[in-house]
């Protein structure tokens, strides 16, 4: 009986936390600051969560593209259709790996940092003191970070895909000798702009939003102690990863499910 009650309480806790995060989101998006104030803040966040994530994205994209090139070549050359390697690499990256891996890397690199930063601001009462100065931390601290993540992730995902395709071309065309014309030709005839590229961008927009939302919410809602911050950071990475993978399935089913 006790276990049942505990289980019910857990369920209620989860629902309450979901409700809090929704209200939190409404608070962040509801208030619009003056552009002259908001823009420099946004810029700073774009720098620290977007530009500074570029290195890890480029390096990972390059390696993933090269691995795709190698694996694709070995499999496709069995059927004598190694020219389809371009199409395979491009579709995998643009549809799936670009948005998904970028979001996972982003959650680990920038999301955890956001959570820790905001959590520490809460623990050291910086958020409280801001409130007491008549400045809403949701607008001043949280909103620029949320928007920056929302803007940065699609850009990072596009960069990831491009670098990956370039890496795949490096392996496939330069090293393994696939004919360059058929590499690009195959790719262009099979990748459709609306179905593949745009859907990939939509995915990365959704992932960017969800990852940053989870990160800033976990920071804002953390228990203000060092243990609280560390568990919030862990939660950010775990929840973001699960949310990205789960949402990816749902989005893929919706976008590509009809054929």
């Amino acid at each position: 009986m006790d276990k049942l009650a505990a289980f019910g309480r857990l369920g209620l806790d989860i629902i309450a936390s979901l409700g809090r995060s929704g209200r939190f989101l409404a608070g962040v998006l509801g208030g619009v600051s003056k552009p002259s104030v908001a823009f420099p803040l946004l810029l700073k966040q774009l720098y620290s969560i977007g530009v500074l994530s570029l290195a890890i994205i480029v390096v990972s994209g390059l390696f993933i593209g090269m691995v795709l090139g190698l694996q694709g070549y070995t499999i496709l050359s069995d059927y004598g259709s190694e020219a389809a390697i371009g199409q395979m690499i491009a579709l995998t990256l643009v549809r799936e790996l670009g948005p998904v891996v970028t979001a996972l890397l982003f959650a680990g690199r920038a999301g955890s940092a956001l959570t820790a930063e905001i959590g520490l601001m809460k623990t050291t009462e910086q958020l409280s003191s801001m409130e007491m100065m008549g400045v809403d931390p949701l607008r001043r601290v949280i909103a620029p970070r949320l928007w920056a993540g929302f803007i940065a992730v699609p850009i990072l995902a596009a960069v990831f895909s491009v670098v990956g395709i370039w890496g795949g071309m490096l392996v496939g065309v330069e090293w393994l000798g696939v004919f360059e014309g058929s590499f690009w030709g195959n790719m262009q005839s099979s990748v459709s702009f609306t179905n593949d590229v745009l859907n990939g961008v939509i995915k990365s927009v959704v992932f960017g939003f969800v990852c940053t939302w989870i990160a800033v919410y976990q920071g804002y809602d953390c228990v203000p102690t060092s243990a609280g911050i560390s568990s919030a950071t862990t939660k950010t990475v775990v929840y973001s990863s699960l949310a990205v993978l789960g949402l990816d399935f749902v989005l893929t089913a919706v976008m590509f499910g009809d054929f």
């Binding site: 530009v51 643009v94 940065a152 850009i155 690009w184 702009f193 590229v197 961008v201």
Partner: peptide, 17 residues
């Protein structure tokens, strides 16, 4: 950073698709 992002999307649109 924004220019790189836009260029990457253009590349995906024009060269890849």
């Amino acid at each position: 950073f924004m220019i790189v992002g836009i260029a990457a999307m253009m590349f995906l649109a024009l060269q890849v698709s």
